[in-house]
Structure formats: C-alpha cells, structure tokens
C-alpha cells in the first residue's frame, strides 16, 4: 500500500490529456480511462514529468480560459 503505482519509478508512464486540456500522468500498464487521450510516452516517469513541466503552461481548464477571454 505504501508504494503507490503513480510513484513507482520502475514502471513506464504516459501523459494523458482531457477535453479541458488538463494533463495526467498515467502508468502504461493500466487501461486509459474514457475521455482521456495519450499525448506523450511511453517513457520513464522522470521524462514524462519534465515533458509536463515544458508543455503544461496554464493550470486553468480550457472552459475557464475561454470565460476569462485571455
């Protein structure tokens, strides 16, 4: 229980995105949940995390960005 699957560095990960342009790290061995698409990977956990730091630039969901108009 103490080692969560998302923290297991020995596994391969992918990066998922949803319709709100929110991202999720995802273990490659698990089925991708509905409403999400793979945008990066499979790669090591670290590589996925650096990709996220480079590519996820706005924490706001898409609908709120549109509402704010900028």
């Amino acid at each position: 229980m103490s080692e969560n699957i998302f923290d297991d560095e020995s596994m391969a990960f992918v990066v998922l995105i949803n319709h709100e342009k929110q991202y999720s790290l995802w273990p490659e061995v698990l089925t991708i949940p509905s409403g999400w698409e793979q945008v990066f990977g499979p790669q090591t956990r670290d590589t996925c995390l650096s990709w996220l730091n480079d590519n996820w630039t706005d924490l706001r969901p898409k609908s709120l960005i549109e509402m704010d108009g900028n």
């Binding site: 998302f6 923290d7 990066v15 998922l16 949803n18 929110q22 991202y23 999720s24 790290l25 995802w26 991708i32 949940p33 409403g35 999400w36 995390l49 996220l52 996820w56 924490l59």
Partner: peptide
C-alpha cells in the same frame, strides 16, 4: 499536479 490529480 499531473501525478496527484490523475485521470479517473
């Protein structure tokens, strides 16, 4: 964020 707020 992506490792704690994960796809459901």
């Amino acid at each position: 964020t992506a490792m704690r707020f994960v796809a459901s």
